[in-house]
Design a protein around this nucleic acid. Structure first.
Length: 191
DNA sequence: AAGATAGTCAACCGCCGCTGA
DNA sequence: GTCAGCGGCGGTTGACTATCT
């Protein structure tokens, strides 16, 4: 797939961050027509984006059921357990975390968890414990890295992240705001 | 205050598997 | 059986932001 577009098409395709207008177009189109074949959706909606780009934007950001914001400790634990079981099967893991996207989980893992794996000493503060911990299941947080399987062996607190800043997004484009706006709009359009 | 560095995350890329013609 | 089109996935990049010096 990923056939090369003709040069005229190539010039048409937009890349990079989505604008609010594009978001609106995509949301409105899906609200009215539903999700469908993404390439034709992109064309029909008048978006100069690839179908893939539209799909990604919708799934990772615009869907009304997408939960944005901090991963809870429970979710962290679940991610660790599922990752220990399945490895980097992000989409599979994401299905067990309602409202979370594979991209979000992947980013979370790479930025938060992987950092701890790379620095186990700093994480526990006890470098010599690590070998012992590999065979027991009750010690402080850490991972056993195997070929594909390693297991999260420790308590969650070792991985609990510092309290993130309170979400003060008053100037931010908040999807909840948007969807409430959409409801108002759709009242006019659909009723 | 300004520059350097680290952290975060949205978006893109390339590959793979599925499906229908 | 082959090919094209598409969706889905995981890896990676790059822009932006926060923190540090």
């Amino acid at each position: 797939m990923d056939k090369k577009p003709s040069s005229s098409e190539e010039a048409e395709v937009r890349k990079g961050p989505w604008t609010m207008e594009e978001d609106l177009i995509l949301i409105n189109y899906i609200a009215n027509h539903g999700e469908g074949v993404w390439n034709s959706l992109a064309r029909s909606a008048g978006l100069k984006r690839t179908g893939k780009s539209c799909r990604l934007r919708w799934l990772n950001y615009l869907r009304p059921d997408v939960r944005r914001g901090n991963i809870t400790p429970e979710e962290q634990l679940l991610i660790m357990e599922l990752h220990a079981r399945w490895g980097n099967r992000w989409s599979k893991i994401a299905r067990h975390l309602p409202g979370r996207t594979d991209n979000e989980i992947k980013n979370f893992w790479r930025t938060k968890i992987q950092k701890h794996i790379k620095q186990p000493e700093n994480c526990t503060g006890q470098s010599s414990d690590r070998n012992d911990s590999a065979s027991s299941s009750h010690v402080s947080g850490g991972f056993e890295e195997g070929t594909e399987n390693y297991s999260y062996t420790g308590n969650l607190e070792a991985f609990t992240l510092p309290a993130p800043p309170a979400e003060t997004n008053e100037n931010f484009w908040n999807m909840e705001d948007f969807w409430s706006m959409q409801l108002l709009n759709s009242d006019n359009k659909l009723l």
